[in-house]
Design a protein around this nucleic acid. Structure first.
Lengths: 157, 157
DNA sequence: AAAATATAGTCAACTTGATTGACTATATTT
DNA sequence: AAATATAGTCAATCAAGTTGACTATATTTT
């Protein structure tokens, strides 16, 4: 697949391919660094947990899946050592899910890798174009979600 | 989620959200127009079938899934009236999967919707910025896949 | 030409990550 | 105080993928 072909793709396909490329690079690097048990969806979950923890239902809404599915995901992440269930400070029905030290480590590592990727891309297209790219993508997301509620940030399709 | 928040997201998250927004809008519109039985992955399959049909193995490589999974997907799409299995002209082991009239109709409809979406986005950010956006995304994809083979266009994560 | 090997597709059994429904314990509203 | 709503979990099911086994046809080797 060469540059010429790419230029003729519609925007949706370009977004799909570029997202795919970046998320794959991120997780390949995470794997190399010993975080092979983390999947992309976990990153979206961690983002909602930080900085102060979150309840299962908050996570479910954030990810756009059921609370039962979140419960299983948390089982897995707890077993793998990334999160802990704490009793909720005020609501005895609830629990609050927080990151362990390893959870914080993977977040920090992820940010470093993403910074590396962005840096390489800036070298490629220049800082101004990168800034414009981010602004334009933000506008598009903003505009597309004007009407809807949008608290779900999980990229489902 | 407001504009300010979006501007502070990393590029990977922005790509995820914008892809998600566009693919969701596309499929919401397709649903309204009576194509509610089509999922995003089917679009990637159709793209490989057109214009001259494709074998199961070609589709499997294109999508990055097994030939058995493709076979099931084709079962579904054949039952739903979008594709047909034809005997392969030269290889009696093989079959060639082609679009039905309804298959062509959904492709045409899809292109119209995508054109609408792009048009609206051009009204939003301007034609020049849209052109730059596409160029930059193309560069990024191109650069990210320099080393790899990349014939898979399915956005897996 | 015959035999050995490779390839295209399908069937069946299994895995994974989601779903819906039922339940317990605690909160909130009436 | 009673009725209802909410947070979380357990169990059964579903959907979309996987691996492994098989048939029929092609291709390669001897």
């Amino acid at each position: 697949m060469n540059h010429q072909v790419l230029n003729n793709l519609d925007l949706t396909s370009l977004l799909s391919l570029s997202f795919s490329a970046s998320i794959n690079e991120l997780h390949d690097r995470l794997s190399e660094l010993g975080f092979g048990d983390i999947r992309p969806v976990h990153g979206f979950l961690f983002k909602c947990i930080t900085p102060n923890g979150a309840t299962g239902i908050e996570l479910a809404e954030h990810l756009g899946i059921t609370k039962q599915a979140v419960s299983k995901m948390v089982d897995y992440l707890e077993k793998s050592g990334y999160v802990m269930r704490r009793t909720h400070p005020t609501d005895k029905r609830g629990k609050i899910i927080v990151l362990t030290e390893r959870g914080w480590l993977v977040m920090k590592t992820k940010e470093e890798i993403i910074a590396e990727i962005e840096k390489r891309w800036i070298e490629n297209i220049g800082a101004e174009r990168m800034q414009m790219l981010k602004e334009d993508l933000s506008s598009l997301i903003h505009e597309a979600n004007e009407d809807k509620s949008l608290s779900k940030v999980r990229p489902v399709w």
